[in-house]
Computed example of a mutant assay.
Amino acid sequence: MNILFLMIPMALLLGVGFVSAFLWATSKGQFDDLETPAHRILKDENERNKS
């Protein structure tokens, strides 16, 4: 039973840490463009260097 007094606050702190990291990432624009990085690998490298 004593372990619950340690594990519950640790789980809450870990959860708050993940939520704050997610909110920070969304405010900095990490999730704005999800399509371009996936399509970038399909383009020819010589095509990118021409322009």
Rank of each mutant, 00 (worst) to 15 (best):
I8E: 08
F31H: 14
A21H: 06
L42E: 14
V19Y: 05
L42F: 05
I3R: 08
D32E: 12
N46L: 10
Q30G: 06
E45W: 03
E35H: 04
V16K: 00
W24H: 09
L4F: 09
H39Q: 09
K43H: 10
A25R: 15
Q30M: 13
E35C: 00
L6H: 06
F22T: 08
F31A: 13
N46V: 04
M1Y: 08
N49K: 15
L13F: 09
M7E: 02
N49Q: 15
R40F: 10
S27E: 11
F5E: 09
S51M: 07
F18P: 00
M10E: 07
M1Q: 07
T26F: 05
F18A: 08
F22M: 14
L14K: 04
D32M: 03
F5Q: 07
K28E: 15
I8F: 08
F31R: 08
F18R: 05
L23S: 10
V16W: 10
K50P: 01
E35V: 13
K43C: 05
P9L: 06
L12F: 12
L14Q: 07
F31G: 12
E45Q: 11
H39V: 01
V16C: 07
L13M: 14
N2D: 11
L12P: 03
F5R: 08
E45Y: 03
V19N: 02
L6Q: 09
F22P: 00
D44I: 05
F18W: 08
Q30C: 12
K28M: 11
N46I: 01
L12T: 14
